[in-house]
Design a protein around this nucleic acid. Structure first.
Lengths: 263, 263
DNA sequence: TTCCGTGGTTTATTATATGAACCGGCGGTA
DNA sequence: TACCGCCGGTTCATATAATAAACCACGGAA
C-alpha cells in the first residue's frame, strides 16, 4: 500500500460521530506506528486537509475540503442532480431513500432524504462508507461490476455486521443472479439488524455503475406487499437519475430495456 | 517534500475553469515526472478522490470529497456560520464581499456574495487560492501570524501578479505596520489590476487568525470616501464572525478592544 | 516521589518512490 | 503505405523517502 493511500485512509476515520481525532486514537484506528501516523497528520495539516485544535491537540477536517467540494459541485453537480430525485422518491414512497456513489470497493453516500412519515424510522448515517456485500446498494452495483472486481470483493474478507449478513461468496453470487434478472437488489438485516432495503444501480458515462439508489424500511414494516409496492417507483427514480447524468444502462442490465422503452 | 504533499498538490490544480485534467497536463502543471504523477493519480483514484472519464481518460475530483465536506460542515459548520454575515455585509455595502480561511501559507476562499448593484463588478473566482502578500486578506492575516511564518513568507518568492504588486519585504512590513494599528489591510491593484480591497482578520479558537473577511471594489469606484465608508461595516461584520466562531481577538490586535467594548 | 498516558521527535534500517526509457494506440500527413 | 508526434500508461534499476523502536517532555493521579 502506498503512502498516499495510508494518509488518505486517516481522513476516512472522520465521521459525524467522530469529528475530532487525536494522535493516539489515530494510531489505534489505523494500527500503524505512531511516528508514521504523526508524519502523515503533519503533512495533511500543512496542506489544509486537517486542522488542529490548539488546546486539545486533536485533529479535525480542514478547509481544503470545502474548496474542492465546491469546485466539484459547480463543475460536475452530481449531488445537485440527484438530490431532487431522491427527495421526490422519498416523499412518494414515504420511506428513507439514499443515493451513493462508488468509491473504490465501497459506496460513499452523497444524499439521503427521510420523509419521517411513520413512528418507526430508519436512521441513516451519511458519513459511513457502505460495504458491497452487506447492503442492497452494494449488491445492486456489484452485480454489474467487472468480474475482476467481483472476484476481489467476494474472495476478500467479508465482515459479518449482523447475524444475517451473507458472507458466503456462493450465496452472494446467488443474490447477484437475482439482481441480474430484475435489476433490483433486496437485502434484509444484513448491515443493520432493523433495516431491510432494496436498491438499483445508477449509471453515468461509462459502462460501469456509478452508484446506487436505495430505499430502506424498518424490518417491522417490510411486508412482501409493501416491499413490492416500492419497486416500481424505485426503478423509475433510478432511470431518472441515470438519464439526467447522461448515462445509459449497458445491454446486460435489465433496465436497459426500460430505459429504451421509456425514452 | 513528502509524497503525500505531492499528491495533494495535484488536487489543487482543479478549479472551476479547469475541472478536468489529463495526465500530460498534470505533468506540465506539476513539473514532475510522468510516471510519478501517474502513480499518484492512480492512488488518488483508488481512494475516490478522483475519478476518471472513461473515454477522454482525464481526471476530475471524486466523490470522497463530497462526503468529507459534509462531515466537516455538519460537525463544524464554519461555512454555514460565515455565510449569512458575508451576505448581509455585501447587501449592506453593495460591494463584493468574501471570506477565506488560512490553509498553510495561503488563503482558501470559502464563501463570497456579490450584490451586483453597480454596472461595473468585481469578478471573484472562488476556486483560486489567495497569496498572502498580494491580497488585503493576506496582509490582514499575516500581520498577526507568528513571526516565523511572516519571515518564511516575506523571505520566500513573492510573485508579481500586476505592476502594482508589492514584492519588497520592507514595503510589505510597512503595510503590516499600518494594519497592526487599524486592524484593516488595504491594497489596490496588487492581485487583480482592476480591484482594490480591504480586509480584516477573523479568529476562531486559538490566538492565530483563522482567516479574513474582505470587501473588494473595482478600482474605478475606489475613491477615498467610498473606501472610508466601507470600514465600519467591515469591522462590525468581522467581529460578528469571530464572535459566532467562539473566537476572540488577541491583545495585540486592535479589534480586541472593540470586541470587549461591544460585548 | 513514581507511574501512567498524552503528543511529539530522533535515527538507523529498509521499504518505497522515483524517472529514464519504453510500449502501444491514435490522428494527421506525406 | 510509412512516418511522425503526441497521448496515456508501464517497467525496473536506483536512490530517496518512509518506517518503527526507542526516546523525550509534559500533565495528571496515586
Amino acid at each position: 500500500m502506498g503512502t498516499i493511500t495510508k494518509a488518505l485512509e486517516l481522513l476516512e476515520f472522520f465521521s459525524e460521530s467522530r469529528p475530532e481525532i487525536g494522535l493516539g486514537q489515530f494510531v489505534k484506528l489505523s494500527g500503524r506506528d505512531k511516528a508514521t501516523v504523526h508524519r502523515h497528520l503533519v503533512e495533511l495539516l500543512e496542506n489544509g486537509w486537517l486542522e488542529q485544535d490548539h488546546e486539545t491537540r486533536s485533529y479535525r477536517l480542514g478547509p481544503a475540503i470545502l474548496r474542492l467540494s465546491a469546485v466539484r459541485e459547480t463543475t460536475y453537480p452530481t449531488r445537485a442532480l440527484i438530490r431532487p430525485v431522491v427527495r421526490r422518491l422519498a416523499d412518494d414512497v414515504g420511506e428513507l431513500v439514499h443515493a451513493s456513489l462508488m468509491q473504490g470497493d465501497q459506496l460513499s453516500p452523497i444524499y439521503f432524504s427521510d420523509p419521517r412519515r411513520y413512528g418507526v424510522q430508519v436512521h441513516f448515517n451519511m458519513s459511513e462508507l457502505l460495504p458491497f456485500h452487506a447492503t442492497s446498494s452494494g449488491i445492486a452495483v456489484l452485480t454489474f461490476c467487472p468480474a475482476a472486481q467481483q472476484a476481489r470483493i467476494l474472495e476478500g474478507t467479508l465482515r459479518e455486521y449482523t447475524g444475517d449478513t451473507v458472507t458466503d461468496p456462493e450465496a452472494l453470487r446467488a443474490l447477484m443472479e437475482e439482481t441480474r434478472e430484475t435489476g433490483i437488489a433486496s437485502i434484509a438485516r444484513a448491515f443493520d439488524p432493523e433495516v431491510a432495503s432494496q436498491a438499483v444501480a445508477i449509471y453515468g458515462a461509462g459502462d460501469v455503475p456509478m452508484g446506487a439508489l436505495s430505499v430502506s424500511v424498518p424490518s417491522v414494516r417490510a411486508t412482501p406487499d409493501h416491499t413490492e409496492n416500492l419497486r416500481a417507483p424505485l426503478i423509475e427514480a433510478a432511470l431518472d437519475i441515470t438519464r439526467s447524468l447522461g448515462g445509459t444502462y449497458p445491454p446486460d442490465h435489465p433496465l436497459s430495456r426500460s430505459m429504451a422503452g421509456a425514452k
